[in-house]
């Protein structure tokens, strides 16, 4: 083994940031959220009801309010 895997990200157009290889996510308030799945989706539209995770709410926003 050659050390920990790098964290990889993919920004979904109009949607969340996919995150692979992370063990935890620290939000703006310093709260630590443990990653429990192989891939997690981080909210980028600020309307999720379970921050920091995406809950699909961006799809009900008008296109101009969705992330790039």
């Amino acid at each position: 083994m050659s050390g920990p895997r790098p964290v990889r990200t993919f920004a979904c157009p109009g949607g969340p940031l996919l995150l692979r290889g992370a063990e935890e996510v620290v939000d703006g308030d310093g709260e630590v959220h443990v990653v429990r799945r192989p891939v997690v989706a981080i909210c980028r539209c600020d309307t999720s009801q379970r921050m920091p995770w995406c809950d699909g709410t961006h799809r009900s926003l008008p296109p101009e309010r969705r992330p790039d």
Binding site: C12, G15, P16, L18, R37, V39, V40, A41, R50, W53, C54, D55, G56
Partner: peptide, 8 residues
């Protein structure tokens, strides 16, 4: 949460 990831 799971399916918000899976749909992408």
């Amino acid at each position: 949460e799971a399916d918000a990831v899976h749909e992408q």
